[in-house]
Design a protein around this nucleic acid. Structure first.
Lengths: 126, 126
DNA sequence: TTTTGTGCAAACTATTTGCAAACCG
DNA sequence: CGGTTTGCAAATAGTTTGCACAAAA
């Protein structure tokens, strides 16, 4: 566990935000300017493989990282990309599972909306 | 609606497969060897924007295209990447929606498993 | 003919990787 | 010391885009 790994894990695990690698890189560089982008990617990948954090693939956008590795759905703003965690709807999964022949090894549920901030702004941007 | 667009749409809409752009490109080239890769991407994007087909972003893999534009969950094999459609569990989505403050504009639900073919092969590949 | 779409190649973005030097145990 | 990890830069994969020419309306 190197200094850079600790820094990167600290940034992801400290806040409920779901940041992109680039955002994490910027935050980390504020504390360790020599940090390389490649190191951020390498460590994020490693932390994901170890099950300490979770990677969220986002459509048409860079991946985001979630400090909560357990499976749960996400609420994604279509305009600004911000992501919120949701509680797992056990019943939904159980009932889907019941209809399937084999075991489910994992799932990814994203619900899209326009977040209050974006709706309020009235802007029509991305 | 050009010949190439018709060809591309035909390939996507004809079969229940969820093919990648590259697979569609190969199939299309079999019938029109001069077809450019860029044209495939351009037309797929256009068809998605028009709501005729649906794009499925796949984690760590090229996107796949679904002839069925309406929202429904997908069952994805973690080993070979093959995708199957599932029926929408309306009631359960409604119950999630009920817990949320604003309207859901769309969703993406992927369930992961190992498909029978991959399980049977016993191989430990990707 | 005026617009729209194509083919080609170059550009782009997010991410990964090879390598020599620096670090950790 | 001896394997691991870093910083850097170059490579990659998938996809997008600019442009001159061809096809459609």
């Amino acid at each position: 566990m190197t200094r850079q790994r600790e820094l990167i894990y600290g940034i992801v695990s400290a806040a409920p935000e779901h940041r992109t690698a680039e955002e994490i890189y910027d935050l980390a560089r504020a504390q360790m300017p020599s940090l390389a982008r490649g190191t951020v990617y390498r460590n994020l990948g490693l932390l994901v493989r170890e099950g300490l954090i979770r990677k969220l693939e986002m459509p048409e956008a860079p991946a985001r990282y979630d400090r909560e590795p357990g499976p749960h759905p996400h609420l994604v703003c279509q305009r600004c990309g911000r992501v919120e965690d949701l509680a797992t709807p056990e019943a939904l999964l159980a009932s889907i599972q019941a209809d399937l022949p084999g075991p489910i090894t994992g799932y990814d549920l994203k619900l899209y909306h326009i977040c209050p901030a974006c709706r309020g702004s009235g802007k029509d941007g991305v």
